[in-house]
Every structure is written in structure tokens, then in C-alpha cells.
Design a binder for these strands. Structure first.
Lengths: 72, 72
DNA sequence: TCATCAGTTATCAAATATGATAACTAAGGT
DNA sequence: ACCTTAGTTATCATATTTGATAACTGATGA
């Protein structure tokens, strides 16, 4: 799988789970001490997240990192 | 879990699996088109890997990213 | 002793993530 | 018409990863 595809898929997974949990980007961002704009960027799949960023997102969504990476 | 601990754990996991597969850092590095020095750095747990780097390592080790993140 | 292999550490330039701010669109409700 | 909420996009400075090179240690074998 090409890198960009991976990033898109992980981003989509984050968005899906966030919506499942009934959270807005803003709410999720707040838990992470992010700006909503950065949350949007994160879900756009244009950014190559670092491990600790993934970890923080997973915690805020109350899922494991593996669930966020469960792509294909 | 604090960030540094997470990074240490993931790094340790990578090392463990690499050794299980009977590979040297050099061999693994070769598969990734890395320098062995960077492989060492990666396993030192001092670096906050990006998603695509984790992905490449997982592929070279023939495991899923989840296996590398299966910490704690 | 000498050479090789495995790994570590430091350093550098280049690329990129991160955090912040701002301006914008679009939808809903009052 | 106005306001709020949700999300997007662009831009900036700063920090950090990445890739490369080099010098080093320690162990093992000829």
C-alpha cells in the first residue's frame, strides 16, 4: 500500500470512530488540546502522524491505536 | 502512559521481533533502504516515528503495525 | 594482530509535523 | 437578517524526523 493511501485510510478511520462516538472535531480537539483546524487537517489524511499523536487521538477516542490502524 | 515510555516500548517491540526473525539491524535496514545507524536510532526509542515509517518497518518484519504497537 | 560484523552515537541538511491564528463556507436555529 | 456550530483551508514559526556520513566500541574469527 502506498504511503498516501495508508494516511488516507487511517484518517478516515479516525473520522469514522469520532462520529460513532458522537463527537465533533471541536470536542475531540478540545480533549487533545488541539485547535479544531488541526483536527480537520489530521482527518484530511494529508499528514503523516507521529506515533505519539496517534496515541493521543486513540486515547481521546477511547480506542486502541490498533483500532485506528486496522486498515485492510 | 507517557510519550517517552510509549516510544521505548514500541522500539523494544521492534527489536524483539527483529531478533525473533533472526535479522541483524543491518539486514532490516537494507530491506528498508535505511542506513544501519538509523535503524539503531529507531530501536533506541528516542525518536517519535511517523506512521509511514512504522508501516515500512512492519512490512519488512512481516508483521502488522498492530503487532508493533501491542504494548502494555 | 588484523579484519569483519553488529551496533552505537554524533552531526548535518532537508523535509515535514505540529501548534497557532485567521478567513472562509455551509447549515440550522432564532 | 443574524448568530452559532461544524468543518475547511492557508499560512507561519518552531520543533523534530529522516536520510546520510563518519567515527567509535566490542566481539569473533582467521
Amino acid at each position: 500500500m502506498k504511503d498516501e493511501i495508508l494516511l488516507k485510510k487511517v484518517a478516515a478511520r479516525i473520522r469514522t470512530i469520532r462520529i460513532e462516538k458522537g463527537m465533533s472535531q471541536q470536542e475531540l480537539a478540545a480533549e487533545l488540546d488541539y485547535e479544531k483546524s488541526n483536527m480537520s487537517r489530521l482527518e484530511s489524511g494529508t499528514v503523516n502522524l507521529k506515533l505519539t499523536t496517534l496515541y493521543k487521538v486513540a486515547q481521546a477516542l477511547e480506542v486502541s491505536m490498533s483500532e485506528l490502524l486496522d486498515v485492510e
